[in-house]
Amino acid sequence: MTLDRELVGRSYPPSAVYEVGRAKIAEFATAVGAPDPVHLDADAARAAGHPDVIAPPTFAVVISLEAAFVVLSDPEVGLDYSRVVHGEQRFLHHRPIRAGDRLVATTTIDAARTVAGNDLLTARVELATEDGEAVCTATSMLVARGEQGTT
């Protein structure tokens, strides 16, 4: 199938609030082997000028990938979930994510095109606090391999 260019610019309603916890940051930092005390120790984080422990640079994916997947459940997008792979990922940090943040994710389709039988869809997820402070822009390019695709 071919992705409809009309999809570009489509936005989805904001997600429920995700409350970032110290234990989740510690769990993620441990899983990726990030040794920095600012992820694990609130005192060390404060000494470095942060209000609380901060998340490693790719932690935003815990919230953003699920938010990006709202496009897969949009019947007008019509991507075949079973064929979707993650093609590219980008994070733009406006400030580090930290424990205590109450984040809302808003997803927008930035690009949609079909190349060599593969559907390429770029979903931009804006993570902001409940009060509207921008925290991170997480952009995912999802690839749905076509029947004759080469990816």
């Binding site: 990030a34 920095d36 600012v38 992820h39 470095a48 942060h50 901060i54 490693p56 640079p57 790719t58 792979v85 993650h86 093609g87 590219e88 990922q89 980008r90 994070f91 733009l92 940090h93 580090p96 390019m141």
Partner: peptide
């Protein structure tokens, strides 16, 4: 030496 110094990070898989 500072994870907060990473402003932007991107890859293609």
């Amino acid at each position: 030496g500072d994870p907060a110094a990473v402003v932007e990070y991107q890859v293609r898989f």
